[in-house]
Design a binder for these strands. Structure first.
Lengths: 342, 342
DNA sequence: TAGCATTGCGAAATCGATTTCGAGACTTGG
DNA sequence: CCAAGTCTCGAAATCGATTTCGCAATGCTA
């Protein structure tokens, strides 16, 4: 009825708790015969150690925390790929995953999480802006809580993260458009200030430079996050430009998909009249009409690496930060085509 | 350095651990002045109770387990909506969510999970076939582990679940097609035997009956799960029927989306030549060309209800099963149109 | 003022494991 | 045959909280 404890086992066997525990944990000071008896009894009585008791004594929980520091829905696509990857790798290493979705931005709650010791390490998905991220990392370091940020690079040698190489991604994407004959290429940046944004912008600028195309600031729009309709508005800005771009790079796929339908409304043919590209390679980007040219990230790889890094940090104790920057993949689909004016 | 424990607090204050604990847990046998002192010290020393110690003593963990009993990727869409709903509601009630993705179908692992007592209750997402589900439920009941199944109905009065009303959904969908003039309506069922399948089939048959249309078994195909290409094959079967259907209902959106692209390959115009409808209302169904008529489920509501039900089961101890069947919503989009032969 | 109820606090048990340390029993070598 | 290891095992401490119970001091009633 009540769960079987190690005491029940030791009583049933006429052995001490110590011996039973040692038999179960593979200690060497137990005779093979005794170990055999213990294991048989475990089977018969259906014993399973209490997680709480074990956690308390061992001072670790074999659980990882995944803090989603961003409206879940907006990164649902990403998470749908990320979470199973993380959970699977973690479970292979006998760790489980606890999800925290309501502590966005709250340093206090992260601190509580650290102090309650209910996880052995934390993966922070979509960390806040750079400054806050550094502070958050410091806080967790102070609490001796191993942690890894994902999927954003943090420009700080002491902070562990797993990210994608957006300089390379944006560069490849821009090069693709240039090779199609485009010379005036619009770029819509993110409103917030992240390394992700500056990386992608750097890649865009680098590709232009490589091709000897002058960087035209009027073709680069930084969306204003205060404006709920900023996607729509900035698309209009591009179109009404005196010398409008023949191709536009959007910072994320949803922005590009939005542009796709705006274009359809205005009878602008994609890609005949205008080439459009997104970024991130979300699932929906593959089923639009036309399908979206974009840059895909190996999300499940990032998940796997994040877990592996975190486990290293946990096992090896204080050590140098682990930083991974993964290559990204250019996905060429129907939304980009030759420059109509080229 | 080392985490602050309740002993540190009691030393610093010159109070016993009991008193400190009682002050923190709102017991009445503590004077307001003492409670105040304790709270102040908590703030100053940065005390946070150890989750493990508390769990051990209280014999509960304030954690819920979400067992995903199905390849994560195949239900990613669903999960992306379900998980945040579940996590948010749980966190409002001071519960966290632990994800288990690698115990598909394994009764043994479920049993271990129950006995380890690392969660207070379990939500099983996408339970296996009826018989196994009943066995699984029995197992958890034996282990005194509260549990709820989702999002499938289980035809057993003793089992708690949250599901959608697929009889109504399939009926509404079929009625929609009938109202468009269709008389020969194909229906592709699932290979496995679930209540979900029989419910949708019953709804389909009921709508036909209501309209006085004879049920034609040759228009109902049960896909064979052993055949990896069964989607493609069954679409061919429909087309080569001597009196082919003018509209086809697919059991799930991915099947319908697959049919959409098969139709495009074969130059069959949707919906002019053939109407196609899906079921489930996944995100991708909204961005196909044409967009898919389907039936949407209030997934986040199901998540919320599942958590609320589970919490009831946890708090009230042994009690009658809680069963919720939610209404579904007919989503009419571009893939269904008037019967060309009508 | 004696007797009783109330209030506020602490001692100790408890939850269920792990781990350290020491002690017999048994070998082994000299 | 004795001293020194080896093997096995158990007693007891420990992890950090909660909870029960008793005790002393105080307030209240008659």
């Amino acid at each position: 009825m009540a769960p079987v404890t190690i005491n029940d086992l030791s009583n049933a066997l006429g052995l001490s708790r110590s011996t039973v525990s040692k038999a179960l944990n593979g200690r060497s000071d137990v005779s093979p015969a005794t170990r055999e008896r213990v294991l048989r009894a475990v089977d018969e009585l259906g014993y399973q150690p209490s997680a709480a008791a074990r956690n308390l004594r061992r001072q670790r929980t074999e659980k990882l925390g995944l803090v989603v520091n961003y409206p879940f829905q907006r990164v649902a696509d990403f998470l749908a790929e990320l979470i199973p990857g993380i959970a699977a790798v973690a479970e292979d290493a006998e760790y489980n995953l606890i999800l925290y979705t309501s502590m966005a931005g709250s340093a206090e709650r992260i601190k509580s999480l650290c102090r309650s010791r209910e996880v052995d390490g934390i993966i922070v998905a979509w960390p806040p802006g750079s400054r806050e991220t550094v502070a958050l990392s410091q806080l967790m370091t102070d609490e001796r809580m191993p942690h890894v940020f994902l999927p954003r690079r943090v420009a700080n040698a002491g902070i562990s993260f797993v990210a994608a190489d957006h300089v390379q991604g944006a560069r490849a994407l821009t090069q693709h458009l240039i090779s199609l004959g485009h010379r005036r290429i619009g770029f819509e940046r993110l409103p917030e200030v992240y390394e992700t944004d500056s990386d992608r912008h750097a890649g865009y600028a680098a590709a232009l430079g490589d091709a000897g195309i002058a960087y035209d600031p009027s073709l680069v729009i930084a969306a204003k996050s205060t404006d709920p309709d900023y996607h729509t508005r900035s698309f209009g800005t591009f179109l009404s430009h005196p010398a409008p771009p023949t191709a536009i790079l959007f910072f994320t796929d949803p922005m590009a998909i939005n542009a796709l339908s705006l274009a359809k409304e205005q009878k602008i043919r994609i890609p005949q009249d205008l080439s459009i590209a997104g970024y991130d390679g979300i699932l929906a980007s593959g089923v639009t009409e036309p399908a979206l040219t974009t840059v895909g990230q190996a999300v499940s790889d990032m998940g796997r690496l994040a877990v592996e890094s975190l486990l290293q940090l946990i096992e090896e104790g204080p050590r140098a930060a682990i930083q991974h920057t993964l290559p990204v993949e250019l996905i060429i689909r129907g939304s980009t085509g030759p420059n109509p004016k080229g």
